[in-house]
Nucleic acid binder design. Structure first.
Lengths: 220, 220, 220, 220
DNA sequence: TATGAATGAGGTTTCATTCAT
DNA sequence: AATGAATGAAACCTCATTCAT
């Protein structure tokens, strides 16, 4: 039984690990070259398996694509939830923390390529697009809206419509991660990320802060 | 003879117009479905010609793609130049004017799809990417940097690094136009453009303005 | 205009002729090797075109198969109708004439392979099977039933149920044509067709004829 | 030890039974869908084993096919021999007995699918075809020829060439069993088997019987 | 100049076969 | 003896490209 279970578990472990290995390889290539321009040969080669193996785990190239997105988004979503939990702080500080952490989690690392991928393929995969819009964007928006609202309520931020502001505020981060996976490839001059983030925070917090600089701020 | 020349000129006009008709059709489809997923059949059909005709004007699908981008960018560039010329005004006012004009020219209209297209295909067409980066982005950046610099020099804007700020400031506009051609397709709730632009200007001008609000015409 | 129409018509004629050339080649191979074992390469090669050309005329291998059957059956059906028209004669004579003609038309020639093909693929193409059953078999049955009924009515044939007899009577002809396209390939000893048909007619007419050999027969 | 030997014998029985279980499953599927369209996956699944297990018993799909036919034919041949032994009777009675028995053995039951299968694949498996022609058809023919000859000798049947007649006489039975496994699948109207056989015997015995109905037990 | 029938390289997908466990 | 994950050759099918008209 020991041997059986050992044997089984070794196989099982392999079989369970496979899909992630495959989607990881596929993510890299989809981000690099787009969905259509990526050949299954390449994905298989990068994952170190044969072409046929892909079909043991995914019914078609499209299904593989969807799995890549779904699996790639799980960390995003988990991170989002985690950040929601760690919120007790003044809005400005909180905003900084969220931004820095987001960049760490998403900006670096391979899942940062997903937004570009979604943008490129949204029209060809409406199902994926809707899923992404609802499960990722709306969820992220709710998170940031809550931060903005807290700042407004406390007087730290000026009165404004958080549902609009959230798009404006988040855009520079999205553009940066999109840029990284598209035009950044060549020899274009790009601002270093630490400077970019510092100036970003400065610009946004100035743009958001209240005109009447009494109370609030360092208070609490 | 009159008739002949008329006929000839009509033909000539037709002949000259052809390439633009073709690239126009191609642009729509490339934006809609991406480069690889667009078939020449479809482009020909939408342009109302036969597939073979495309090859009278373009050597290959790639060349057609490049022509689409190049031709699509000409209005962008021309507009840019035009705006550069019409610059005498306080920096804040100028900025507003540029933004509103940009949205009119680019945000609406089919060339607004080009940024998404570039982002999606930059890795597959480095030549195009470099061309775009140098001819469009750098040029646009120079324009905006000049505006920022003028504001800093006049004390209207706080001292800052315009080369960094320009990316931050332009991102919400870019994201909006990218969004329009990707995730906006479905039923996602999107902020109306006039509100978006108003809040955008408010946020950015507040974020940029000097702490010492004396001097100058920036007074509110 | 003359030149245009000539040009057009040459092309047109070619384009119209193509499908038949392709289905003819496909019929031969399908009969020889079966549907699944026939590669599109082979069909294209035998028709003297490239693989891609097949897809200009048929959407898929299945559609090609259906077209082969449909087109192959048209002559069968047309012949059937024609025979119906040429019926004025005593039942026995008529039966002989129909049998001989059927063998000429179907037994020889490539469409004789269709029955074997239908039998082999009926389960995989229920749609085809139903079409064949209704359009060919039922139609042919009606024809022969009419002949039997005429013989019964005139007293030439004994009273019996023509709907059952028609199957029994036709079976040896069907088996012969099926045999020709299957087991006959090798070195099996096969009875010559003229003897086969002579004995067939003898057996069937004896089996059918009335017990009371007065009137009828040569009468009329 | 008892348990061990019991276990061993159970295993042994299992092991010996395996091949038949596999060919039985394969026969069903080959008959249903044809050789090429049947996947080994399906066969394994229907037999309740894994795909790899098939290769413990058969070297390839072709070998499995051959084994299916060979094994399927064994009952046919055995039955044939048995019938040969039980021949003492007037030819007509004997013929009836053979026909009824044949339908019981072959017409019903899964081996009835073999003729269709042979017909469909004869061209692709000449070896099988020859084997079938020699071992089954020729043997069956000899059997029936003997019956016909006995009838001729006794004056019960008219003088004729039994080698030709045997094909004619057997065709309706073959067609019926082929039909059952091909076009009968759908909603086609089919004559009930008991009526079919009754009319069949009537037709054939009338077709065969002597013109001079004196002597012998054929009186009826 | 314009057409559209024809091509064939290259992609996705299937499935008989193998082999480590 | 039995498994089932992995393979890769070969099939179907697509579509950018060509060329006779």
């Amino acid at each position: 039984m020991t041997r059986d279970s050992a044997k089984a578990s070794r196989w099982r472990r392999r079989k369970d690990a496979r899909p992630s290995e495959l989607t990881a390889a596929a993510l890299e290539l989809f981000v690099e070259k787009g969905f259509a321009a990526t050949r299954l040969d390449e994905i298989a080669a990068r994952a170190g398996v044969s072409k046929g193996t892909l079909y043991l785990y995914f019914d078609s190239k499209e299904e593989l694509f969807k799995a890549v997105i779904r699996e790639g988004l799980l960390p995003l979503l988990a991170e989002g939830e985690e950040l929601v939990a760690s919120m007790p702080a003044p809005a400005g500080e909180l905003f900084k923390a969220i931004v820095m952490r987001w960049w760490e989690m998403v900006g670096e690392g391979p899942i940062g390529g997903i937004p570009k991928l979604i943008i490129a393929e949204a029209r060809n995969f409406p199902e994926i697009a809707r899923f992404y819009a609802e499960e990722v964007i709306d969820r992220g928006k709710r998170l940031l809206v809550a931060v903005l609202q807290r700042g407004i309520d406390s007087g730290e931020f000026r009165p404004c419509d958080p549902d609009t502001l959230v798009h404006l505020v988040f855009s520079p981060l999205m553009m940066r991660v999109i840029w990284k996976h598209s035009l950044d490839c060549c020899d274009v001059h790009t601002v270093p990320i630490d400077i970019y983030l510092r100036e970003y925070l400065e610009l946004m917090l100035r743009g958001l802060r209240s005109d009447t600089p009494n109370r609030q701020g360092s208070a609490r």
